[in-house]
Amino acid sequence: MISIKNLHASIEGKEILRGINLEIKAGEVHAIMGPNGSGKSTLSSVLAGRQDYEVTDGEVIFNGKNLLEMEAEDRAREGLFLAFQYPVEIPGVSNINFLKTALNEIRNYHGKEDIAAKDFLALVKEKQKLVELDGKLANRSVNEGFSGGEKKRNEIFQMAMLEPKLAILDETDSGLDIDALKIVANGVNTLKNKDNAYIVITHYQRLLDYIVPDFVHILYKGKIVKSGGKELALELEEKGYDEIKKQFELSE
């Protein structure tokens, strides 16, 4: 699905990612954990194509294509989805119009015609149920005046609508109460299948009780310093990041 090799990226001359290597296959869920400032969000931004970051080295191959050479919109059209840590409010653009435009641009990219209005509405109805999103929210401006939980559920709703191949959930659990967390996790688990993959970026182990990862990677100072199975997350929860930090400092 995606192959990240020796990825280096910096912002304003400061190197944040210092050689990331990661291989993800279809059907897998990878969790990336790490303390604040370790580069988790930078990794997701770089993959999604945010302009602020400069990739200084390495390559990313996404389904056989060079991801880093693509514009952000083309990455999305190729099936990459970033669920934002801080979804952006866009006053005046209705959620529905936004999603319809997105869906159609992706369809057009793949040589398909615009979706029929009737089919679109049916799809909206079906996917809204998945994240228990109030129908009224669909007609409101994108994320405007949404609560923290509503914003995150809206991200998952969009994901459900666009059906990406690889979804990156960037701290989707932050700011969520346990009920909202369950709804979000349930949405992801329902959408999960053998043909798609997930990168779940999180600071805490809590989300991983509900979205069970196949692999857990620990990111520290811009590198993956440890990888393992789901038990690594539990170990981390128990010992905290200090142990990792200590080990890493020693090895450096």
Partner: peptide, 13 residues
């Protein structure tokens, strides 16, 4: 820029 990136990240050109 944030709004633009958000739209691009959803496939909107």
């Amino acid at each position: 820029d944030d709004a633009m990136f958000y739209l691009h990240a959803r496939g909107i050109g």
